[in-house]
Design a protein around this nucleic acid. Sequence first.
DNA 1: AGCGTTTCCGTAAGCGCTTCCCTGTGCAGC
DNA 2: GCTGCACAGGGAAGCGCTTACGGAAACGCT
Lengths: 377, 377
Amino acid sequence: MTDEEIHLPHVRKPVPSLTIYDVARTAGVSIASVSRVLNGHSTPRPETRDRVLRAVQELGFVPDGAARALSSRLKEVVSVVFRRPRAETQAADAEEFDDEADSLFFMDVLNRGIEVAAQLEGFDLLLSSVDVHEHSPGGKVAKLAGKSDGIILHDRVLTPNGVIRLADRIPVVTLAGTPTRASVNIVGDNVAGMRDLAKHVLGDHGYDSIAYLSGHGDSPDNLIRGKAVREVAEEFGLPFEDGPNWSGEYSAAGGARVIRRLIEEGRPIPRVICCANDQSALGVINELHRRGYRVPDDVAVTGFDDISVARHVSPSLTTVRQPIERLGALAFETLYTMISGERPAERQIVLPVQVVQRSSCGCRPETAPAVGAPSVR
Amino acid sequence: MTDEEIHLPHVRKPVPSLTIYDVARTAGVSIASVSRVLNGHSTPRPETRDRVLRAVQELGFVPDGAARALSSRLKEVVSVVFRRPRAETQAADAEEFDDEADSLFFMDVLNRGIEVAAQLEGFDLLLSSVDVHEHSPGGKVAKLAGKSDGIILHDRVLTPNGVIRLADRIPVVTLAGTPTRASVNIVGDNVAGMRDLAKHVLGDHGYDSIAYLSGHGDSPDNLIRGKAVREVAEEFGLPFEDGPNWSGEYSAAGGARVIRRLIEEGRPIPRVICCANDQSALGVINELHRRGYRVPDDVAVTGFDDISVARHVSPSLTTVRQPIERLGALAFETLYTMISGERPAERQIVLPVQVVQRSSCGCRPETAPAVGAPSVR
DNA sequence: AGCGTTTCCGTAAGCGCTTCCCTGTGCAGC
DNA sequence: GCTGCACAGGGAAGCGCTTACGGAAACGCT
């Protein structure tokens, strides 16, 4: 008689999972009452209420989200879409993969901000990435539209036209993108932040040359930041560099690569390197150290974002703090009002940012109290 | 007569979004045929097929996920739940918040691994965090169960009993947790990894004392790692320290705090500090530098996980590489087989890890003037 | 007591899909 | 020309819930 699992036929749901009918039966009421109790509507009599709740408790009932969504026309889900560097986890070159992957750090924090804000309204996040080489991410994103009440698009997921088309079907908010007639864009104040930072290094420190190590070429944030640095350099009448040779792709490996090539080709290193984000600044600093350059004594380096490790490295990183989580939260909140049927007040919301002066620009001596910097070298 | 929107009563969906009926009408077929075409079932005639696809294209139709899920009993969604340090984004102390938040780095990478694997099967991730102070996360998690086909639980979300209760209703996989009779646990080989690492610093380098800077007290990973270090220390007959004074809470700030107190209280610093993860190791190293200690010359420090920044800091961090993304992918794959109705082969899957020797243990001279491979070893 | 209100709750109609079942058509075989 | 069969595709049921509607019960008032 020991015949466990002889050949049970690949079933979906062996247990026909309990429904609201089961609860109704157990409680001796109608399904309508169960629903009302569960949703706190139209205050049922306390006694009925108790009966239902007891039945729910006893059976361990959890209402099916799909059925609720279908019926109430609200899924309580918003999708978040971002671009991911590589298609496969099992990429051949794991090292390379990791390096690319770390450019996602910023997004992770952003997503967390969205998530926390969403929880407050009882919404959950449907997270989805599209491959950076995906030709038409439109299809994938459309599928998500079917699973959610609204969509938050990170940088560079869809073209402005794609965004418009999507936004006709479902509320859309973009992060660090560009606003369209149908979607709202949320962004940090790149111009003010980068200008302040550039003015600080050029003005306060008086360095005599500067470069912008760029992020992804098609990222609006990147373009704007680079332009800001250039403009400040011109205002100061100082030499400025950027372009294809200065493409750090937002990653530590990318930043290091730029420096490596620079040195190998014997080109001069500018006195200041303004990086598009913190990750690439980390790579730059590390590579400079490797080659025997001192930061900030020989070269000053700055970042952007103020990710948490920025203050835990030596030299600690001078950067521009973006209210990352707040950006995410605001994205959700905006989307939420759109889902509720209101039309958003503005097409774009710009959040203030703030220069954070640490050591890598030359502001603070590295090892404050004691022995000379044992860190760097 | 200019009475635009006199007082339209807060509608949900002004546009009664198109349905499969609209497509059917446009294509001149029945909804059954549309459904069949869309799902590739029972090969309809090419001509019909084209008509339908053209209609879909023309209208920009996207099937409603909730309706599909309700009908087909498959949501194509898995939930991922993790603990989040603080409740509110707008926490008063932003600095503090960030520090806590960076302990989430590991999870983000893990989640990415899950996500990529899920995409391969057409599944999406429903991301949800529970507050670390939440008393009974069971309710929140139960709600998620209603929205998904399976659940992946990070470290310390539910008690083993809670996991069992949940796993009776829906497939559950835990990450770095403990296996139960109904759920599967996926974990890196903490014991082997930590033992190898400890043997390396104690054996190969011959250091004479060691401490374990712990992570969260109730994290299984943390407990096991600490135990491994202790055992190796005992095998070598060397002094070992851990305990409440050595609680780094997995964060850079936590690691720094431990060192700060240690120094302020004038207690001796062990020759080696094995940290529970990379983040806290970063904090430790930074604080040691601040106080004038050299790493690895005065104190050797190691991490765990091999997050990407580990090789972009100076000194680069000796650590144990976990196949983080692979862990996540495996979690999904396992969950997927469970959702498909198969029972998992094992209650627990342990993935191999690997010691990565860099500078912070004393292995490599810091400023390598060389050009070549800055990578692993 | 009689009537109008209000409250509570059951009935049933969907929500937008998938899929079973069955009809209608075209075609091969006799 | 008739029967039998394969197959494309339509009708309709049903997934598990919310909610409009309306009946019954309970209450307040004259």
